[in-house]
């Protein structure tokens, strides 16, 4: 079963720990945070559970169709109040419980002072192919 671990810049439940923004950490703390993410991904590759990890820049815009022959309408940059996705990791694991366990570990990435930042991660199952045997 594949699951998406979704990391938000903004949105989701209220933060459990009110940690300072990353630019206020020491460079070593930033490095330690990044290294934790890389180690985590490497460990999942080792266990045969890693599928993909990507990060998104915060900038961007909403775009929509505005009728034949007209340029698309854009709306942005995102308002401060909007949910903003920072990136994701895709895992392929044996159970929902394992997905939750791994999300918990990823959320323990260290921040200022080397303490876990306790950030909320959204866990979402992928829709799959329908099974061959259906009735």
């Amino acid at each position: 079963m594949k699951y998406l671990l979704l990391k938000h810049y903004r949105g989701g439940p209220a933060p459990a720990v009110d940690w300072a923004p990353m630019d206020q950490w020491t460079p070593e703390e930033v490095d330690a945070h990044m290294q934790y993410m890389r180690d985590f991904a490497a460990r999942l590759e080792e266990t045969g559970e890693f599928v993909d990890a990507q990060a998104l820049a915060p900038g961007g815009t909403f775009v929509r169709y505005d009728g034949e022959g007209r340029p698309p309408v854009t709306d942005g940059p995102f308002a401060e109040t909007k949910d903003l996705i920072a990136g994701w990791m895709v895992i392929d694991v044996e159970s929902w419980d394992r997905a939750v366990e791994l999300a918990g570990e990823l959320s323990a990435a260290p921040g200022a002072g080397g303490e876990p930042i306790h950030e909320w991660l959204e866990v979402r199952p992928f829709l799959t192919e329908p099974p061959t045997v259906t009735e």
Binding site: L44, E45, E46, F50, V51, D52, D92
Partner: peptide, 15 residues
């Protein structure tokens, strides 16, 4: 076939 990277599948098999 299972839509995972080859390295991941290789590790799954060797584990």
């Amino acid at each position: 076939a299972y839509l995972v990277p080859e390295a991941t599948m290789a590790q799954r098999i060797s584990r």
